[in-house]
Design a protein around this nucleic acid. Structure first.
Lengths: 187, 187
DNA sequence: GTCAGTGCTGACCGATCGGTCAGGTTACGG
DNA sequence: CCGTAACCTGACCGATCGGTCAGCACTGAC
């Protein structure tokens, strides 16, 4: 076949997202992705300049989502700021379960990634919102715990994720409630 | 020199702990460790059967610590159970900052590790303790968030860790308080 | 003194890594 | 019906991976 599937590109992205998330970026070889997709490694590198480009394309939407979130909550403050941030954070995390793992576990370890260096700054701003822009060190620690906890919990690898029956509703509400409690917002 | 330093073994462990934690297990090569220590790769493999053995030896103490923690809180229940578990969890996490990263981020991704398969079970029991042995799905979600949040926060890579000035006291107390709030324990 | 054994090195191994390249096959515009 | 460009393959590259091995330097026991 000749022009059979530019859809292959999409399938490569899907496989990469899954495999990177399961095994980690470094631990996943291009050959493994190619085998999973059912194409040659060369085909893979025809669609993506290199392994890095693959990762970047997977993470871009998450970065955008984060930017939107920050923009949306920028004018808010006080209790409304915290509640909105927590809600959106949990929703975003659930939406990008697989990418979150990459973002939290692999990215920080890869040698300084020039185009994504806005990320530490975004994380900082996110922490600010979670504290309701408080500078209290302990509030920041709590925010850090919440952020990391939400991220890692939604991306927990084993099926029957963490809630008993595994319903997303329990996961979502459980996280929001626990996060708000941790941040000192009375429910 | 002939019998100059069985201390080399310890230095290898130190470097491995640091490098594994910074870059990840898969992403760290034996050569990098050897260079960091200042010995040959062969010397490294003289002291440790293989790369896996190195990782196992780093994680064993953490596993023991976790087992102790679980044994200690086993007879407790109710509020005392939760408070003691949270306190000990935070202390243990602070004590094994670097190893925690490996445990939470690398281990789950490595192909099934026979000798450490007790770990998922231990995690499960730890979650039980954090919920005060409740079976409520949302309580388990909260416990999962706390566990992941504590682990990832103490092992945050960038210096000036997460608290403003970075004092361990703020980190410790901030985490304990936030965790207890998240778990619904009134302070 | 010598000899067994510990601690270590450099050279080397096959496998696999990310990535390149020449070329083949098909689809489509002219 | 032909040419160009898109899509893809297999063969190949140098580098590096985890790991092995023969042998050297030195120590302590006898």
């Amino acid at each position: 076949m000749a022009r059979p599937s530019a859809a292959l590109r999409g399938r490569i992205l899907d496989s990469s997202r899954r495999l990177f998330s399961e095994r980690g970026y470094e631990a996943t070889s291009l050959q493994e992705i190619a085998s999973d997709v059912g194409c040659s490694k060369a085909a893979l590198l025809y669609h993506f300049k290199n392994k890095d480009a693959l990762l970047a394309e997977l993470l871009t939407p998450v970065g955008q989502r984060l930017a939107e979130l920050l923009e949306k909550v920028a004018p808010l403050d006080g209790e409304e700021l915290v509640r909105t941030t927590v809600n959106d954070l949990v929703n975003s995390a659930l939406e990008y379960r697989l990418e979150i793992r990459l973002l939290f576990e692999d990215l920080p370890r890869l040698p300084a990634r020039p185009e994504l260096n806005l990320l530490p700054d975004s994380t900082e701003r996110l922490l600010d919102c979670l504290t309701g822009r408080s500078r209290d060190p302990r509030a920041r620690v709590a925010a850090s715990m919440v952020l990391a906890g939400v991220a890692l919990t939604v991306s927990a690898r084993d099926e029957a994720p963490v809630g008993g029956d595994g319903s997303d509703a329990d996961l979502r509400h459980g996280l929001v409630e626990a996060a708000l409690r941790a941040l000192g917002q009375d429910l």
